[in-house]
């Protein structure tokens, strides 16, 4: 019996043959592994659906023995690591858009990046967001090496540079509000873009 927090339980199917039981347990474990990044509610829903499919298929009359019937059923469904990926990718995207949680956003991007240019743009923006986060950190610990650098009134760099001896950092304390505001703008852009891609 698999139980997820605050939700129903998934009743395991009982087989007469030990081998069939093992095949079933192994298949369900693979399903669980594939959907592990989903919310508890989505995980349970998916697992119950696959479990129900296997159970209903096993109830059908046929000449096959229990093991063969189970093998045919799981073969027809396919490898969980393959056929469940589109569902996981889509559900993860919905979760990312609803929660704005960076962890979910990142996982959704990883799963959807192969789905087109839109996700590639979002990934680049997300990388930009991580860089801004990193720069805030380096500005605290290496203030003279992080910022907006000019040399002889000419723009040289924005970010972290190891040798800033002959350059002039012009932002000073303003680096923090500017970086934070930029990061917030990028984050809003990411969530808006994800929302647009989700509704496509």
């Amino acid at each position: 019996m698999r139980q997820y927090k605050n939700y129903f339980k998934v009743k395991n199917i009982e087989f007469k043959s030990i081998s069939a039981q093992r095949i079933y347990n192994d298949y369900l474990k693979r399903v669980e592994r594939t959907i592990s990044i989903l919310s508890e509610k989505d995980k349970l829903d998916m697992l119950m659906e696959i479990n129900s499919h296997i159970y209903e298929a096993m109830q059908q009359d046929g000449k096959e023995n229990e093991i063969d019937k189970l093998l045919i059923t799981t073969e027809n469904l396919g490898l969980p690591e393959e056929f469940l990926i589109p569902v996981v990718a889509e559900k993860k995207l919905i979760q990312a858009v609803h929660t704005f949680n960076p962890k979910h956003v990142w996982q959704a991007l990883k799963m959807n990046i192969s789905n087109g240019l839109g996700y590639s743009i979002v990934s680049i923006l997300y990388l930009g967001l991580s860089v801004f986060g990193f720069l805030i950190f380096t500005k605290i610990f290496f203030p003279s090496k992080t910022g907006l650098f000019y040399m002889n009134n000419e723009f040289k760099a924005f970010g972290f540079i190891s040798n800033a001896d002959e350059m002039n950092e012009v932002l000073g304390f303003w680096f923090f509000p500017i970086t934070i505001v930029s990061a917030v703008i990028i984050y809003v852009l990411i969530t808006l873009l994800l929302g647009m891609l989700k509704s496509k």
């Binding site: 119950m48 027809n76 396919g78 490898l79 569902v87 889509e90 559900k91």
Partner: peptide, 23 residues
């Protein structure tokens, strides 16, 4: 039907609001 393709399809139809489901 490749049965594995059925569940992603149902999930998409549900997400688009064309079908609903209940346990």
């Amino acid at each position: 039907i490749a049965e594995g393709t059925f569940y992603p399809l149902m999930n998409r139809l549900k997400k688009d609001g064309f079908v609903e489901s209940n346990w």
